[in-house]
């Protein structure tokens, strides 16, 4: 961009304002702004802790129910990005399901599995194998993943009752306790 704008070799010494100079500086600033914004995004992730998760994100689960982020206020929501081709997701699958069965009766916690770039048959096989009962749906068009700017799977995000992000975990949970502690913390807020 600034490559060609700088090629204005007109000196235009008489004029007070040199349009070439204006263009060059404008181009440079625009470039820096773009890169700066992007860098900021890269550094803090798509949604930072404390940010409100966009309300219009929605996912339709494999069994046909639609969940919209904005409609889930009043519940602590655990968002788990996973995929059937992901090996480390399997490490946490059992613990996640156990945690879900612990919290489900309370009614104020929802687990939502977001199947990241996957094929449906393989995903269903995976869900059946680990006997996962909380709702799971494909992340269509990777909307969720791009919003959160995930760097891989598994990644888990916990949203509090006001819809703010309070916790994020890159990589698999090591134990059931870790999951329970994180949710309890979110509930107490």
């Amino acid at each position: 961009m600034n490559a060609t704008e700088t090629q204005t070799p007109e000196p235009t010494p008489k004029k007070r304002i040199s349009w070439g100079a204006v263009a060059v500086w404008g181009g440079l600033i625009a470039l820096l702004v773009i890169v700066g914004l992007m860098l900021n995004r890269t550094q803090r992730g798509g949604v930072a802790i404390g940010d409100t998760v966009p309300a219009d994100l929605e996912v339709t689960s494999f069994d046909g129910t639609t969940y919209r982020m904005g409609d889930l206020r009043g519940k602590v929501v655990l968002l788990n990005f996973w995929a059937s081709w992901c090996t480390t997701c399997k490490d946490e699958a059992v613990a996640l399901e156990q945690a879900w069965r612990m919290f489900q009766p309370q009614g104020d916690v929802l687990f939502l599995g977001l199947d990241y770039v996957d094929t449906e048959p393989d995903a269903l096989v995976y869900l059946a194998r680990y006997d996962i009962t909380y709702p799971n749906g494909p992340d269509k068009g990777t909307r969720w993943a791009q919003t959160f700017r995930i760097s891989g799977v598994p990644e888990t995000y916990i949203v509090d009752k006001e819809g703010r992000l309070v916790y994020k975990k890159i990589g698999p949970f090591q134990s059931l306790n870790e999951i329970v502690a994180a949710i309890q913390q979110a509930l107490e807020k």
Partner: peptide, 8 residues
């Protein structure tokens, strides 16, 4: 593929 996995 675009619908499911995004334009990339």
């Amino acid at each position: 593929f675009v619908d499911n996995y995004g334009a990339r």
